[in-house]
Simulated assay, not measured.
Amino acid sequence: MAQIATSMANAFSNESEMKAMDANRYATKKTIAQGMLDIALLTANASQLKYILQVGDQHQFYKLMLIMISLSIILQLLVGILFVVIGSLNINRQKDQAAAVIINDIILVIIFVISVINVIISGFGIEYSSRPLTLLEQQANNLP
């Protein structure tokens, strides 16, 4: 019986600790984590852009890939700006809550679009190569 009472007391104690959690601090940490993931994707897209610019018209889908990668990078920069805006809001204030919800929804939609664009980019085959082309490969591709 004493164990049940102790368990119930611990449960109520944990509940009060959860209620005391600062929602604004949680939202800020979440925004920072999302920003870090955005930086990782931005780095990958920059690498893909470098590759597609090096290959040039030799790539079968050069123009499409150039447009898709550029659009992805632009949207990622927009999301980064929105992260800064939403990170500056204090969701403990009623006035900031409505703006935070709207901006969060906009970020969600843009991130979904970025994800679709990057799936398409992957589907059209960006091949990474850390080595320069050999003389035979350059001649086969009619490169100087």
Score class of each variant (00 low, 15 high):
residue 100 A to I: 01
residue 91 I to C: 02
residue 69 I to H: 00
residue 115 S to F: 05
residue 76 Q to Y: 04
residue 109 V to F: 13
residue 80 G to R: 05
residue 58 Q to Y: 10
residue 80 G to N: 07
residue 78 L to M: 11
residue 124 F to K: 05
residue 87 G to K: 01
residue 70 S to R: 08
residue 68 M to W: 09
residue 88 S to N: 14
residue 122 S to W: 01
residue 77 L to V: 10
residue 111 I to Y: 15
residue 59 H to D: 09
residue 70 S to Q: 10
residue 110 I to F: 07
residue 114 I to F: 06
residue 100 A to Q: 01
residue 93 R to I: 14
residue 65 M to K: 01
residue 92 N to D: 06
residue 125 G to Q: 14
residue 84 V to C: 15
residue 127 E to H: 15
residue 74 I to R: 15
residue 81 I to V: 14
residue 60 Q to T: 08
residue 108 L to W: 14
residue 58 Q to R: 12
residue 73 I to K: 03
residue 104 N to S: 10
residue 100 A to K: 01
residue 109 V to D: 08
residue 91 I to S: 00
residue 117 I to N: 08
residue 112 F to E: 15
residue 132 P to H: 08
residue 118 N to F: 01
residue 122 S to F: 01
residue 59 H to I: 12
residue 90 N to C: 08
residue 79 V to S: 00
residue 65 M to I: 00
residue 99 A to N: 06
residue 61 F to A: 14
residue 68 M to V: 06
residue 120 I to L: 14
residue 57 D to H: 08
residue 131 R to C: 01
residue 82 L to Q: 11
residue 123 G to C: 00
residue 55 V to K: 06
residue 62 Y to E: 03
residue 77 L to Y: 08
residue 131 R to F: 04
residue 96 D to S: 01
residue 98 A to H: 10
residue 65 M to H: 02
residue 96 D to R: 01
residue 71 L to Y: 13
residue 118 N to H: 00
residue 89 L to E: 00
residue 118 N to P: 01
residue 107 I to K: 04
residue 94 Q to A: 15
residue 79 V to N: 00
residue 78 L to C: 10
residue 83 F to R: 08
residue 90 N to R: 06
residue 105 D to Q: 13
residue 116 V to H: 04
residue 58 Q to K: 12
residue 63 K to T: 11
residue 128 Y to V: 09
residue 82 L to W: 10
residue 96 D to N: 02
residue 102 I to R: 11
residue 82 L to R: 09
residue 128 Y to E: 07
residue 77 L to N: 14
residue 90 N to K: 09
residue 57 D to K: 12
residue 67 I to H: 12
residue 127 E to T: 13
residue 85 V to T: 04
residue 100 A to V: 00
residue 133 L to T: 00
residue 79 V to K: 01
